[in-house]
Design a protein around this nucleic acid. Structure first.
Ligand SMILES: [Mn+2]
Ligand SMILES: [Mn+2]
Ligand SMILES: [Mn+2]
Ligand SMILES: [Mn+2]
Lengths: 218, 218
DNA sequence: ATATATTTTTAGATTAATCTAAAAATACTA
DNA sequence: TAGTATTTTTAGATTAATCTAAAAATATAT
């Protein structure tokens, strides 16, 4: 039996070691889980007992097969539920995360499968994040941050930050998923970028925004 | 903050005091929750502290306003999710209960509202149980157990037992919700009943089955 | 009404998950 | 390389939810 808390730790470890490409440190996990390093140390031991992670004192944590399965399963369910909330219940992309955070822990595998089918086997969630298949394999896509984009034209395909504030600001700028944009000018002074949105509106985008928007060349 | 465990106790208390039309006894709650009377005694005190129930030692428990709100909210969410699972994900009525048992604890009120709308504001769940509105009001319906039915013709509108075994047996007999039946003979010997199903098949139904099937005269 | 049975509560432990404070190990820096 | 800073672990407590065993209250039955 794996508790919801344990599941959340496994997901955090997955997220950190994907990003760092290295074992997850106690402190990184503590930050991600918004808890104390002491609690993390405790929990890691429990997960190691259950053979879900590899762990040597002072050397960080890596997911084992079983732990990875659980982590990617959670991500899969989280993202499928997010698609459900947006596509079927008309929630907006800035409201869904906390609800999906709860829904991802519903146990039934059958449920995930049928939900996937009901939604038409989506490959990406409402934030543009890939939805892993039942084996934990993610679809990759050629995408770069707007701040690093070298081309002329592209479409918004994802966001790197998921905060309500950021997503609502994007809504206001009409920079939602799929939106076609054209680079007009990269401003040296502060790294902001002048773009044309949907072939119409011209807009200056701050560097901070550009660093959180994924573009795919078109 | 009310935990899922506390929510389940409140639901159990609601169920028992509805059926008995009296305060719920410690033992009845323990049976319903599949736990010890000692644990129930503990929990009741905690719920009383939180003003969710009225409780005097040795005298049983009654829900207060707040506790009732939570209990009916849970029942509402449970039954809405059951409708979702059957109508949208094509689960059968004998598989959905344990999944709904988890889904009912997802917090968002907005979610329940939008789910209700998405499902077309259903008034009954896949077992024929009424779905309360946001204020906890149930729709009542003239229905009797088949074993007590005096009329000639009627339709199956609900079940009193929800076990997988019973529901699958009903599927086999084609006695699903909405099915029209006609009483042909009440057998004195063992209380079983000979009926015609959908104007076609003739079948003998045991007294035990008849005691768990709700009929509405047609 | 008194003895017996049943129900309910209390006492005392246990387990998961958390915390703060302090100790131990490792990393960084002059 | 020594000294300081940072990270990680351990120690010791706390809280929710559970358990078994035993005590206390209530109900039932002769
Ligand atoms: Mn999310
Ligand atoms: Mn997402
Ligand atoms: Mn149910
Ligand atoms: Mn039901």
């Amino acid at each position: 039996m794996v508790s919801s808390t344990e599941e959340n730790y496994l997901k955090a470890i997955f997220k950190i070691s994907e990003k760092e490409n290295a074992p997850a440190s106690t402190n990184a996990i503590a930050t991600e889980m918004k808890t104390s390093a002491a609690s993390v140390s405790d929990m890691i031991k429990r997960l190691a007992e259950k053979e879900l992670v590899s762990y040597e004192k002072w050397k960080g944590v890596t997911l084992k097969e079983g732990g990875k399965k659980i982590a990617t399963g959670l991500i899969r369910k989280h993202r499928l539920w997010e698609v459900f909330l947006v596509d079927k219940l008309n929630f907006s992309w800035d409201e869904i995360h906390p609800i999906a955070e709860e829904l991802e822990h519903i146990k039934s595998d059958e449920l995930a499968m049928r939900l996937d089918e009901f939604l038409g086997f989506p490959k990406f969630d409402p934030h543009g994040d890939p939805i892993p298949d039942e084996n934990g394999n993610f679809t990759f896509r050629k995408q770069v941050l707007l701040s690093e984009f070298k081309g002329q034209k592209g479409n918004i395909v994802g966001v790197d930050e998921h905060s309500t504030q950021f997503l609502q600001y994007l809504d206001r700028l009409e920079l939602t998923l799929g939106t076609p944009i054209e680079i007009l000018e990269k401003i040296e002074y502060d790294g902001s970028i002048r773009i044309r949105i949907k072939g119409r509106t011209e807009q200056i985008i701050s560097n901070k925004v550009a660093q959180n928007l994924y573009i795919k060349a078109s």
